[in-house]
Amino acid sequence: MRDKLVEFRNVSFRYSEGQPWVLNNCSFEIYENEAMAFIGHNGSGKSTIAKLMNGLLFPQEGQIMINGRQVTPESIWDIRRDVGMVFQNPDNQFVGTTVQDDVAFGMENRGLPRQEMVKRIDEVLTAVDMKDYLLTEPDKLSGGQKQRVAIAGVLAIFPQVLILDEATAMLDPKGRTEIMQTVAEIQKQRHLSLITITHDLREVVQAERVIVMNEGRIWAEAAPRDIFARRAELRDIGLDVPFVAALSDNLKQAGVPITHEALNHEELLEELWISRSKM
Rank of each mutant, 00 (worst) to 15 (best):
V95A: 03
A104N: 08
M65K: 08
I64R: 10
N42L: 14
M36I: 13
R69E: 15
L57K: 03
V103I: 12
R69G: 12
N54M: 01
G43T: 12
T98W: 08
N42T: 15
I76D: 14
L57Q: 04
P90K: 01
D122C: 12
F94V: 05
A37V: 00
P90W: 02
V71R: 04
L57H: 07
R120I: 02
Q70T: 15
V95P: 06
G84V: 00
P90V: 07
P59E: 04
R80Q: 12
L125D: 06
G96E: 01
S44T: 07
Q93W: 03
Q100W: 12
S75F: 10
R81G: 14
V103D: 09
A37N: 01
T98L: 11
N33M: 04
R80F: 11
E116I: 10
W77N: 14
I66Y: 01
P59M: 02
N42E: 14
D122H: 12
R110D: 01
Q93I: 05
D78V: 15
G111N: 01
G43M: 12
Q70I: 15
M107K: 05
N89F: 08
T72P: 12
E123C: 03
V118E: 13
Q60H: 09
M85N: 00
D82P: 06
V86S: 04
E108L: 01
G43S: 12
Q115R: 13
R110N: 06
G40E: 08
Q88P: 11
P73G: 12
V71T: 11
N89I: 05
L52K: 00
P73H: 12
Q100R: 15
W77D: 13
A35Q: 13
V103W: 01
R69D: 14
E34N: 04
K119M: 10
H41E: 15
D101Y: 09
R110T: 00
V95S: 10
E108D: 00
N67K: 12
A37C: 05
A50M: 01
E123W: 02
N89Q: 08
F87T: 10
I121K: 07
S75K: 13
R110M: 10
R110A: 08
V103G: 01
V99W: 03
M36Y: 13
S44N: 06
F105E: 09
T72L: 09
L112A: 08
P90A: 00
G62I: 05
Q60T: 10
H41M: 15
D122R: 11
G40H: 09
S44F: 04
R120E: 08
Q93R: 02
G55Q: 00
I39R: 07
K46F: 01
F58Y: 08
L56Y: 05
Q70C: 13
P73M: 09
E74N: 14
I66A: 04
E74D: 15
V124K: 04
E74S: 15
I76P: 15
N92C: 07
D102P: 09
G45I: 11
D91Y: 06
G96Q: 07
T48Q: 04
D78H: 14
P59Q: 06
V99Y: 03
F58T: 07
R69L: 14
F38P: 05
G55Y: 04
D91C: 11
G111D: 00
N67V: 11
S75Q: 14
Q88Y: 07
Q63K: 14
G84E: 09
P73K: 11
L112D: 00
L112P: 00
D102E: 08
V124R: 00
Q60I: 08
L112N: 06
Q100D: 15
T48W: 05
T98N: 10
D102F: 02
D122W: 10
D101E: 14
S47L: 02
V83S: 03
